[in-house]
C-alpha cells in the first residue's frame, strides 16, 4: 500500500473524461483507492489479465480473484502529444502518453505530466504512485525512476 498524494496541479474546472467503472473492474479501482495495483487473476490457471473480462482467454474459467502486484515496470512505448484532443490536457501539451509494462507482465497506459518529454525513452524504469485527481478520486500515476 502506498501513500496517496492529495495534491494535484490539475484544474478542477476542466475534468478528465470520467472513468466508466464497471462491476467487472471494481476490484482494480478498489485497490487504486487504497494505493495498490491489483489485477484480475484466473483462479484456475493463475494467469493475470488486464483489462478486466469475464473469462480467462487461456482456460476459460470464469473464476478470478484480485492479485496485488509491485508497481514497478518500464516504458514499453510512448508518444508525445503536441495537440490536446480533450480540454483536460490543453494546458499540458506537449505531454507524454506512455504504455507501461509492469514487471508482472501486465500493461497500463498513463499520461506523464511532470516530465520533460525530451528525456523519455523506451525501457526507462518507472514506478507507480497514486494521486487524488479532481473529480476522479484516486488514480494511478507513474514516475520515471532512472
Amino acid at each position: 500500500m502506498s501513500e496517496i498524494d492529495s495534491e494535484s496541479n490539475e484544474s478542477p474546472a476542466v475534468l478528465r473524461p470520467e472513468v466508466p467503472r464497471t462491476e467487472l473492474s471494481q476490484g482494480f479501482w478498489d485497490a487504486i483507492e487504497k494505493g495498490e495495483l491489483a489485477f484480475q487473476r484466473c483462479a484456475a490457471c493463475q494467469r493475470l489479465r488486464h483489462y478486466p473480462q469475464p473469462l480467462c482467454p487461456e482456460c476459460h474459467s470464469g473464476e478470478s480473484d484480485w492479485q496485488t502486484v509491485e508497481g514497478l515496470g518500464r516504458i514499453y512505448s510512448y508518444t508525445v502529444a503536441h495537440r490536446a484532443f480533450h480540454p483536460a490536457w490543453t494546458d499540458h501539451v506537449p505531454y507524454v502518453i506512455a504504455t507501461i509494462e509492469l514487471d508482472c507482465g501486465v500493461r497500463m497506459v498513463c499520461d506523464l505530466l511532470d516530465v520533460d518529454p525530451d528525456t523519455i525513452e523506451i525501457d526507462q524504469r518507472v514506478q507507480a504512485r497514486f494521486q487524488e485527481l479532481p473529480g476522479q478520486g484516486v488514480m494511478p500515476r507513474f514516475e520515471v525512476i532512472d
Binding site: R16, V19, V109, D111, Q136
Partner: peptide, 8 residues
C-alpha cells in the same frame, strides 16, 4: 475506462 482518462 483505461486509456482515455489517461490522455490517450
Amino acid at each position: 475506462e483505461f486509456e482515455r482518462p489517461f490522455g490517450n
